[in-house]
Computed example of a mutant assay.
Amino acid sequence: MDASSLNDLLSSPEVQAFASGFPVMVLHLGVTLGLLILGALIYALLTPWREIALIRDGNPAAAVAFAGVLLGLAIPLAVSLSVSTSVRDVALWGVATLVLQLLAFRIVDLILTGLPQRIQDGEISAAVLLVGAKLATALILSAALTG
């Protein structure tokens, strides 16, 4: 490839669009991943059981339940990211999504009484039910975000 061909390639609209869009995409991704981590930390602090400690102790029900939390947070954050147009938009919709989803998770935890103890006891069936409820709220919230 000679210098002229390389110059033509580098000045092509596709390469220019990538060069200007890639840093923005990385910034949006970083903000969204930060919100996911923040949401998971807040959820871990709000729950009546300590999933991370249970997971470290080998409790599969806690691992399934926490995986559902991560997916339940990630789904509406992903939709929020897809409908946002700026970093400010990503942050605002992301925070709104987290607040609503954490509230919905707390309501699910209250409705499904007795599950914390069952998860602590390692009951996979309780964890699967909890994951299903949290994913259902994530999907409904995601649909609401898209209008």
Rank of each mutant, 00 (worst) to 15 (best):
16 Q>D: 04
113 T>R: 13
20 S>P: 01
57 D>K: 15
19 A>N: 10
85 T>W: 12
18 F>E: 07
36 L>C: 07
103 L>E: 08
70 L>I: 15
71 L>T: 07
30 G>E: 00
12 S>V: 01
41 L>T: 05
92 L>K: 08
116 P>M: 14
59 N>T: 07
49 W>S: 14
114 G>Y: 06
73 L>D: 02
70 L>M: 13
110 L>A: 11
37 I>Y: 10
20 S>A: 13
15 V>S: 12
16 Q>A: 15
108 V>Q: 05
82 S>N: 12
91 A>F: 02
73 L>Q: 09
63 A>D: 11
82 S>I: 11
25 M>P: 04
22 F>A: 14
112 L>Y: 03
95 V>A: 09
52 I>P: 00
110 L>Y: 15
38 L>W: 05
31 V>H: 06
18 F>V: 14
35 L>P: 03
82 S>W: 15
103 L>I: 13
90 V>C: 06
119 I>V: 07
61 A>Q: 02
19 A>I: 12
95 V>F: 06
73 L>Y: 03
56 R>Y: 09
117 Q>N: 13
22 F>P: 06
57 D>S: 10
111 I>F: 15
111 I>H: 15
98 L>S: 00
33 L>Q: 14
37 I>C: 09
59 N>P: 00
68 G>H: 02
44 A>Y: 02
38 L>S: 11
30 G>D: 05
77 L>K: 01
86 S>M: 05
58 G>L: 09
